Simulated scan of single mutants.
Amino acid sequence: MNDAPKDWFEAELQDTLDEDYEIELEDAVLSAEIRRIYRDNHPEQMDRKLYFQELLRLQSELIKLQDWVSHYKEKIVVIFEGRDSAGKGGAIKRITQRLNPRVARVVALPAPSDREKTQWYFQRYVPHLPAGGEIVLFDRSWYNRAGVERVMGFANEDEVEQFFQDVPEFERMLVRSGIRLVKYWFSVTDEEQQMRFLMRIHDPLKQWKLSPMDLQSRVRWESYTKAKEEMFERTNIPEAPWYIVPGNDKKRARLNCMSHLLGLMPYTEVPHEEIELPNRVFNPDYERDVLPRDLYVPQKY
């Protein structure tokens, strides 16, 4: 028996696992001291093998969800909110890692422009809402007004109050239009956020994640807490409830979020036509041109 196909499939599987490992290798350049402090504060970390098994299983289910969304022209919006460094981006990355970017896309809007500041508050978010057959994941959303804009003084209390009056009806309109709206809040403790900020400061690969606004969020921890509590109280509606994801353990938070999201959706397996690879057409008169060497990327590795 020819072992070549088997060897090829094993190599492809290993490449898939290597991709996961690259994403997981988040403390590779940290000092030994920072790694020791982090591990001392996370003594019951999830077994790596079990984590990868569950991650791949849930990602395979997300592909089924994607197929269902495409087939039935469903519309899904998932909002990810939480304190800085709470793990929103990591969860989004694992959810979308194996999905078709034409179906599932991430929206992470910058600060509003001068023009956008004069618009209806929700206006800049509307163009990013899904059409039939699409999943949109908001890495922060219109809830900026209830959080960072309020705490940092970018919105006055009248604007915040108007937001609280408008957002329940805005979200009910989205749901009535056929959008399945899911809202997640990633929650971390004061001590955990401080640890993650310190890790970012000492990690050259993550320093870009720290902004002056992030550092101010440490100073204004209690103000953010009060703002979050009022946000939950006034925007936790039956049509679009909040779901809190305990985020101190990153791996468990990702898996729990993915599993919960799948459990909210009534997706089913969509029948697929059997795929057959057609035979390549060989033309005896065709001769492949030899391309100039300077067109090729240098083989450094």
Rank of each mutant, 00 (worst) to 15 (best):
V107Y: 06
V107G: 04
A108D: 06
A108L: 13
A108C: 13
L109S: 08
L109Q: 12
P110T: 08
S113H: 10
S113I: 06
R115W: 12
R115C: 00
E116R: 05
E116W: 02
K117H: 04
K117I: 07
T118C: 03
Q119L: 12
Q119C: 06
Y121C: 10
Q123Y: 05
Q123E: 15
R124C: 04
R124W: 11
R124V: 01
R124N: 09
Y125K: 09
V126Q: 02
V126H: 02
P127M: 04
P127D: 05
H128D: 13
H128T: 04
L129T: 00
L129S: 00
L129C: 02
G132E: 04
G133D: 05
E134H: 10
E134T: 06
I135Q: 08
I135W: 08
L137M: 09
F138S: 00
F138A: 01
D139S: 04
D139Q: 11
R140L: 07
S141D: 02
S141Q: 00
S141H: 02
S141G: 00
S141Y: 02
S141C: 05
W142S: 01
Y143R: 09
N144K: 14
N144G: 15
R145G: 09
R145Y: 08
R145H: 09
R145D: 07
G147P: 05
V148E: 14
V148Q: 11
V148Y: 12
E149N: 04
E149F: 06
R150E: 08
V151S: 07
M152F: 14
M152S: 07
F154Q: 04
A155F: 13
A155S: 15
N156G: 14
E157K: 09
E157R: 12
E157Q: 15
E157H: 07
D158Q: 15
E159P: 07
V160E: 11
V160F: 08
V160R: 11
Q162I: 13
F163E: 01
F163G: 01
F163L: 00
F164D: 06
D166E: 15
V167A: 11
V167S: 02
V167H: 07
P168K: 02
P168Y: 05
P168G: 11
E169I: 13
F170R: 05
F170C: 00
E171F: 08
E171N: 01
E171Y: 10
R172D: 14
R172I: 08
R172G: 03
M173I: 13
L174E: 02
L174F: 05
V175E: 12
R176L: 12
S177C: 08
S177Y: 06
S177A: 15
S177Q: 13
G178M: 13
G178D: 07
I179K: 11
R180Q: 14
R180S: 13
Y184G: 10
W185P: 07
W185T: 02
W185I: 12
F186R: 07
F186T: 02
S187A: 15
V188N: 09
V188E: 09
V188D: 08
T189V: 00
D190T: 04
D190C: 06
E191F: 03
E191S: 09
E192H: 01
E192A: 03
Q194C: 01
M195C: 04
M195Q: 14
R196Y: 01
F197S: 03
F197N: 05
